[in-house]
């Protein structure tokens, strides 16, 4: 198992390399002179030249890439000019908040989505199945940012069950209960779309499995139907559900940007949008590389989980 994990980690190296190249190339597409873009059109030529030198923009592309990469590997992601702070420090601070939000949403959508899919398949064409199918259709069609706004309107403004926005109360203790009450609405809003997608795929994966011969064997053994569905069928269906969870994790992680905007959540997504609007290129670059790298690592964890679940995968 350790060997398998190591092997997967090694295979991630070229992917991470590729990600850094793609981000670098995209950022190199910036039209015109980045220094002018950063400093604005009123900048003096002296200032522009100094900034170009500071950013290393006077050097050839390839050299610039390797300098950037080498610095990153040493933990130096550059300095954000709009915040006047090291990019990595800012990204790490913000990423914690995103991780809380996206992580909760991911757990929610995995549990709810799989459960809904299983119930839907087990009661195919029944009332529960129809209700779930309709809810799923609504869930995958509603823009998460619109859903978030409607949730604020109903549950925060009208019913006053939850705070309107933010991660912590402005006054008062920053304890778990405060976090949970601030987290509930954004996490739900973020989870809805992924829940729908996961429920759909879980339903069809379950239907596929429930027709298999080994399910008939379980029934012939006299295993209770509850156990046939939740133990035998779900375990086999998880083999095709888990890769979907991996893909959806990417949607949840990056979709957090909308929810962070709606709920004023101090996460990395809002940081990126602010940085884009302020043309803070280094902050965008660092943030994107960091989040993408974390996602690659998460996918390795998904593969490892898959190999633990399915003994037929050679580890």
């Amino acid at each position: 198992m350790t060997g398998y994990i190591l092997k997967r980690l090694v295979s991630a190296i070229p992917v991470l390399f590729g990600i850094s190249i793609i981000v670098f190339v995209i950022m190199a597409m910036i039209p015109g002179d980045p220094a002018t873009a950063i400093l604005g059109s009123y900048a003096t030529p002296d200032n522009v030249e100094k900034l170009n030198r500071d950013l290393g923009l006077d050097k050839p592309m390839v050299q610039r890439y390797f300098i950037w990469l080498g610095n990153m590997l040493q933990g130096d992601f550059g300095r954000s000019f709009s915040l006047n702070r090291a990019v990595l420090d800012e990204v790490l601070d913000r990423f914690g908040a995103t991780l809380v939000l996206a992580g909760t949403a991911f757990v929610l959508c995995s549990l709810l989505g799989v459960a809904a899919g299983v119930v839907s398949a087990a009661r195919q064409y029944g009332l529960a199945d129809k209700a779930i199918t309709f809810a799923v259709l609504l869930g995958i069609s509603i823009p998460s940012f619109f859903l978030g706004m409607m949730m604020i309107l109903i549950f925060a403004v009208k019913l006053r069950w939850f705070p309107v926005s933010g991660m912590w109360p402005i006054y008062g203790a920053r304890d778990l209960s405060a976090l949970i009450s601030h987290l509930t609405l954004p996490a739900l809003a973020l989870a809805v779309v992924a829940t729908g997608v996961i429920a759909r795929l879980s339903r069809s994966a379950m239907l596929e499995v429930l027709r298999q011969d080994f399910i008939r064997t379980a029934r012939a053994k006299g295993v209770h139907e509850r156990s046939v569905v939740w133990r035998h069928a779900l375990r086999a269906a998880m083999v095709s559900i888990i890769p979907v969870l991996g893909v959806q994790a990417g949607f949840v992680l990056s979709g957090a940007v909308y929810i962070e905007m709606v709920f004023q959540w101090p996460g990395v997504g809002r940081m990126l949008v602010d940085a884009i609007l302020k043309r803070d290129i280094l902050l965008v670059q660092g943030g994107v590389v960091f989040v993408a790298a974390c996602y690659v690592m998460f996918n390795i964890a998904v593969d490892v989980a898959q190999s633990l679940l399915d003994p037929r995968i050679k580890t």
């Binding site: 990600i19 990417g250 949607f251 992680l253 990056s254 994107v288 993408a292 996602y295 690659v296």
Partner: peptide, 8 residues
Amino acid sequence: MAFPYILL
């Protein structure tokens, strides 16, 4: 495809 969709 290794990127989270919206991030790219």
